[in-house]
Design a protein around this nucleic acid. Structure first.
Lengths: 84, 84, 84, 84
DNA sequence: CGCTTAATATAGCCAC
DNA sequence: GTGGCTATATTAAGCG
């Protein structure tokens, strides 16, 4: 095998390793996403609103000050629409 | 041409017509979506927050009573999280 | 009217114009979507499977997208090989 | 504690459990996404084009999806021809 | 840092 | 009417 061939083989192996690592991680993420769906489905089965649960979770993620800022802007725009 | 061939031809023509009508309509929808994007881009250029504009538009679409109901549920869930 | 009031009024008018343009465009999209539904309903009435029609249309769309993507990837590889 | 209070408490506990399970899973997903970023960064450091790597991975995923869809469409056609 | 593209979440629709 | 599925809308990430 020539040096060029060896270098190519090494590169090819590296690329394959990288691609497979990413694909493995993507699969793990997909599995977790599946579990999340199941939890929501179970919650729905117990009579809870998944839409509201999602909103609650989203709100908890969002910082309080950011929320306040957004609310203020939102009110301003809505006032504009009401011609105030 | 046999009767079978004729029937097949008619069916094929019908299918083609249906598919092309749908594709034409889908294209029109895509064109309008493109225009919407342009309007938002222009608004952004004038200094408006597209995120808030989207929220305002979404809210206007939603009926008032539905909004109230959602808010009530949301508060209930949040109270639950605070252990109240 | 003070300058401040005038500026605010102008802004409010601009926001209203933007929101109403978007809402108008959204309505047009909804109308087209309605027409699409009618075409599918008519096709179903003539005995065609809407599921298959949808898949065929999706396939045709995907083929067009694939072609564009194929070209993009090819160009990327070529650029990479040229060390760009 | 009244029965009503007990029922409410149980509900509150359930909601908290659901929300916390989701948040835990979301955190795990975020951690994996972080690892993916690190793998790409490392690959970039070794001189590989992350853009091409991403396209290759997307392509491999799409091929797998395509195969499944192809089969589904084929079965649909076969069922349609059998008048099912 | 903005701007374009990919990931995700939501909503609507269709079949059962 | 519900559940799965597709399509759209929103959000996040990566690149220059």
């Amino acid at each position: 095998m020539t040096d060029t061939e060896t270098a190519y083989r090494v590169t090819a192996d590296e690329i394959r390793t990288i691609v497979e690592r990413i694909e493995r991680l993507d699969q793990e993420k997909a599995d977790i996403a599946e579990t999340v769906k199941e939890v929501f489905a179970e919650a729905k089965g117990r009579g809870y609103s998944t839409a509201i649960l999602r909103k609650v979770i989203a709100r908890r993620k969002k910082e309080a000050d950011e929320l306040a800022e957004e609310t203020a802007l939102l009110e301003m725009y809505e006032n504009a629409l009401e011609g105030k």
